[in-house]
């Protein structure tokens, strides 16, 4: 897959980092404002998608592979389950027990395990959707090229 024109590339080079930064912000402040892990992961994936579409598939293929995304997705899902099990074993009573101190409301460190769960979900959703995107757009296209050769 070839990249797009120089105008698109420069605009994406400026905006791509900002989009990913916004995704991180939405993930980390999910317990303070509307947002959360799912949305943050999808925003990060949107930034990566934008850059892959603008700069072409070859460069993206050098930087990241599908199995990296699969590994990260598994790591995120496992982290979410481990947080749940920590509530069960470390804090005693029940699955998904909020075992960390809840802190002061409206502070970034409040909410106990809610920010941690948000980060785990963001990793899982972002990596999973990025992997699906790479498999759909780059994989199919390169297979078509191989058939053409």
């Amino acid at each position: 897959m070839r990249g797009m024109s120089i105008i698109v590339r420069i605009i994406v080079a400026i905006l791509g980092g900002l989009v990913i930064l916004y995704g991180l912000y939405v993930t980390l402040t999910g317990h303070l404002a509307p947002g959360g892990g799912f949305v943050g992961g999808v925003i990060i994936m949107a930034g990566i998608t934008m850059m892959v579409l603008a700069f072409g598939g070859e460069r993206a293929r050098e930087l990241m592979k599908e199995h990296h995304c699969q590994m990260l997705e598994g790591f995120g899902a496992l982290a979410f389950v481990i947080i749940a099990l920590l509530g069960f074993f470390a804090a005693g009573s029940c699955f998904f027990k909020n075992f960390l101190p809840t802190g002061k409301v409206h502070e970034l460190t409040s909410g106990g395990m809610i920010p941690l769960s948000n980060v785990a979900i963001a990793i899982k959703v972002g990596a999973g959707l990025t992997g699906i995107f790479l498999a759909l757009v780059l994989g199919c296209r390169s297979a078509m090229f191989r058939k053409g050769k």
């Binding site: 999910g30 317990h31 303070l32 404002a33 509307p34 947002g35 959360g36 909020n98 809840t102 802190g103 002061k104 409301v105 409206h106 409040s110 909410g111 106990g112 809610i114 948000n118």
Partner: peptide
């Protein structure tokens, strides 16, 4: 829960 956002809580 200590979360200001009730939905996330």
């Amino acid at each position: 829960t200590g979360a200001a956002n009730v939905v996330m809580g």
